[in-house]
């Protein structure tokens, strides 16, 4: 089965055709890479899938269910988690709270349990902290639970954002430029982590990268975008050799 199927997706901002009729699909358990020069429309694709933008046209199917019309906040419950190109942590909340907030969205209790601190409340809170702790340990953030997120070094903030997205137990994870602002060693570390995540949580992943290195390493298939369009699709090997891809990237270098 396909985890996600995108058909003829379009989005313009004024005169800019940010995404101009994109179609692709990702099979369950597959990892798809999206690459392309800056401004190609990659992030816009994510924002359309998670409905931070409303598509001008096109259809998005998630496990054969049309999700084109669902509001953003309902998607995590269906199983879509995401990270952001420019990190969006809750900076003044603790590392623990950054994750429990996500867990408690799904495993909740009502207002009265909260006010009167019923057994249900205590149980749900304890369980949320336990789950969060598991992820904190997995991402080697142990000992920093009570620190505000803003106190973490950049690389660890990236990990925390991944941990937060994973705490939703997503079936599909959208990762936007995880390597941005990281040095080669941190990137290597990240590749290992993403591999582990994929195994352990049996996830379908779409990963955006601007640099080709990281994404070539972990994707089974790659979609190359330029000027809002898909200019080619193939295995990492095929993509590396393709003339159009080289041109798109060369064009950027000389721009």
């Amino acid at each position: 089965m396909n985890a996600i199927e995108i058909e003829g997706l379009r989005k313009g901002f004024g005169g800019v055709k940010a995404v101009d009729g994109i179609s692709f699909h990702v099979g369950e358990g597959e990892t798809l890479g999206i690459i392309g020069p800056n401004g190609a429309g990659k992030t816009t694709v994510f924002n359309l899938i998670t409905r931070f933008y409303v598509p001008d046209s096109g259809r998005i199917m998630f496990f054969e269910k049309d999700i084109s019309h669902l509001p953003s906040y309902k998607l995590p419950r269906l199983g879509i988690g995401r990270t952001f190109q420019n990190l969006r942590l809750f900076q003044n909340l603790t590392v623990m709270e950054n994750i429990t907030s996500a867990v408690l969205c799904e495993q909740g209790y009502n207002v009265f349990s909260g006010i009167f601190r019923t057994e249900g409340y205590l149980l749900a809170e304890a369980k949320a902290r336990q789950e969060a702790q598991r992820l904190i340990d997995f991402f080697q953030l142990t000992g920093r639970e009570k620190d505000p997120a803003r106190n973490l070094p950049y690389g660890e903030q990236r990990k925390l954002e991944l941990a937060r997205a994973l705490s939703l137990r997503p079936r599909l994870l959208l990762i936007d430029e995880p390597g941005a602002g990281m040095n080669p060693r941190e990137i290597q570390d990240l590749v290992t982590t993403i591999r582990e995540i994929r195994e352990r949580f049996s996830l379908t992943i779409i990963i955006i990268e601007h640099q080709m290195g990281l994404v070539m390493n972990i994707s089974e298939r790659i979609v190359v975008m330029d000027f809002g369009e898909k200019i080619m699709e193939g295995t990492p090997g095929e993509v590396k050799k393709d003339k159009r891809v080289i041109e798109a990237y060369l064009g950027e270098e000389f721009a």
Binding site: L75, L89, F90, Y109, A124
Partner: peptide, 24 residues
Amino acid sequence: SRYGLFWRCIKEDETASMSIGIDT
């Protein structure tokens, strides 16, 4: 409670809040 936590999340970042499933 979780409601207060969601309020604080919203103050920090509304977009991120929606991305984890908070009905902002």
